[in-house]
Amino acid sequence: MTGLDLAFATTGLITAAAAALAVTTRHVVHSALWLVVTLLGLAGCYLVLGAELVALVQVLVYVGAVVVLVIVALMLTRAPIGPRAEHTTGPAHRVLAACVGAGTGGLVAAVLLPTAARTPVRPGGSEELARQIFSTWVWPFELLSLLLLAALVGAFAVAGLTTSQEGTR
């Protein structure tokens, strides 16, 4: 048990606890804020594992942009202070959700745990990462950005920002 092990266990525990709170709290905005703690904890995990760049990008993109977007969306719709009854679900739904969660978790564990052995960690500096992204993984990377662009255009279409049907809106 080294210091790094301890640090990893701590950040992992914080991440798991915050994630559990994020899905169980009845305050909608609290849920988003617990998500922030979860993502920061995950960044901490990456940091302990030696992947600084991934950790920093995690904070920059997920905490700085995605979660802020989630909170803005909540504020724009309806996120009053205090617990809300309409967001809670019946026992049947909860059992079903727990089953799905446990199933997914079990599946991931079944796939990952057999591979869990001592493996030498490749030095994950930013240069090595950049080389990998822009050589080996360049096509998946570009396809992902295309997918995001398609989603963006789709969002525009759904939001009705096209000018062709000005009169009918």
Binding site: V36, L53, L56, V57, L60, V63, G64, V67, V68
Partner: peptide, 12 residues
Amino acid sequence: LLVLAVIGVGVL
């Protein structure tokens, strides 16, 4: 990157 990341968190 870290400076940019923490400044982004300040928005929260």
